[in-house]
Design a protein around this nucleic acid. Sequence first.
DNA 1: TTTTTGTATTCTGCATACAAAATGACAAAC
DNA 2: GTTTGTCATTTTGTATGCAGAATACAAAAA
Lengths: 226, 226
Amino acid sequence: MTNTQQVTPIARRPLHEEAADRLRDLIVQGRLTPGERLNERLLSVQLGLSRTPLREAIKVLATEGLVELLPNRGAIVSHMDAVRLSESMVVMGALEALAGELACINATDAQVNEIRALHYEMLAYHARGDLAGYFKFNQAIHLKIVKYSGNTMLFNAYRQLNANVRRARYLANLSRERWDAAVREHDEILAALAARDVKRIKALLSDHLTHKLASVLAALPSRQAA
Amino acid sequence: MTNTQQVTPIARRPLHEEAADRLRDLIVQGRLTPGERLNERLLSVQLGLSRTPLREAIKVLATEGLVELLPNRGAIVSHMDAVRLSESMVVMGALEALAGELACINATDAQVNEIRALHYEMLAYHARGDLAGYFKFNQAIHLKIVKYSGNTMLFNAYRQLNANVRRARYLANLSRERWDAAVREHDEILAALAARDVKRIKALLSDHLTHKLASVLAALPSRQAA
DNA sequence: TTTTTGTATTCTGCATACAAAATGACAAAC
DNA sequence: GTTTGTCATTTTGTATGCAGAATACAAAAA
């Protein structure tokens, strides 16, 4: 039993990945605002690394669309205008519809129940009127549906679009009516999933995203006026 | 009219972008084979730049899924197994169906005619039995349809998946029957687009991708046996 | 012969150094 | 008062240097 010990298989996480994660958080949480410039020197000291891995992270975020690269002028947090937002959500609608379809076929009963559990937790936050908590579980449910489609490429594509859209989630400062409607839609989505009703879940998810988009777009102009 | 001149907007292209493009080509063209290791020092001299911008490019390719990052062991060209391939094509099918729908609505007549021109060029190569030329215009047509959907996010998502799938295009060493059928399908797709028949183009593109996937999957096992 | 172990070499990951471009300040000219 | 030109400073883009991990290889042991 000399060398049989588990030699830490935890290869230290590369700094550029760490940096990418932290930058993503900063952007999605709105700590770095759209249009804001990413000063490399400043960020490198704030994140406690050198410019090299930081730059690698920034390049990754650029391909993900979270930041924009300006030649010789570094990177800025990309703007999230109504056009980009609705474009993204339209694509996500198509992806979720496909995901629902596949999940109906591929998800195990245990996975469906996992989603069901999240659904009830979400209902609890809805009942309390806690929007932030609601959003969190709402997000989790949608992600799980896509994940349990069993299609990794689909999951990755969805994840990437979602990161961009999440930045604007505060815009969906939805009315009570829309909120209640969204919850009802989620009820139906879960029912369709449990019933393995492919046609139905596809239609439901597609409509759900369409409604969400409409809700966000309705809220958008008032924001820009402010 | 003193300063109205076009002040060379051609800011020199950053080396990391140049490197990313060239690496993409090398991978898509199969000059770098799946599983092959990317030696940074070697590649940097071959491409005529230093390791820093090269590494940035590699990180970008990794997020695009063209290469895989192994901790402390650099990057390898990612493998293109049947699972990944079919997963990607399923997603592309959904995206193309959406794109066709949107293109029907948004594309100008001039753009439709541009696609028509590509279609005829493709027919010429088909008539000659020139598979490589056929593929080239086939690709161009599909890309144009997605582009003329007018949805930039959709285009980006599609482009990324496509880069991965193109690497396996030689696998679709299709039979004459399948080839002829594919051409007929393209005829119908173009007709539906010109007729602005949303329902029809959606169904056609979805089926087209399904058939293409089946064709590729059928060709795959024989390849692996060889 | 096969396996193991110690060592040298190669390669990656990261930090730093340097050059070119952009930004900003400030003064001169209109 | 505005504009324009010049210079100092800051910031990005790229190259290079260095430490540690991984790999290859050779010698020793089974």
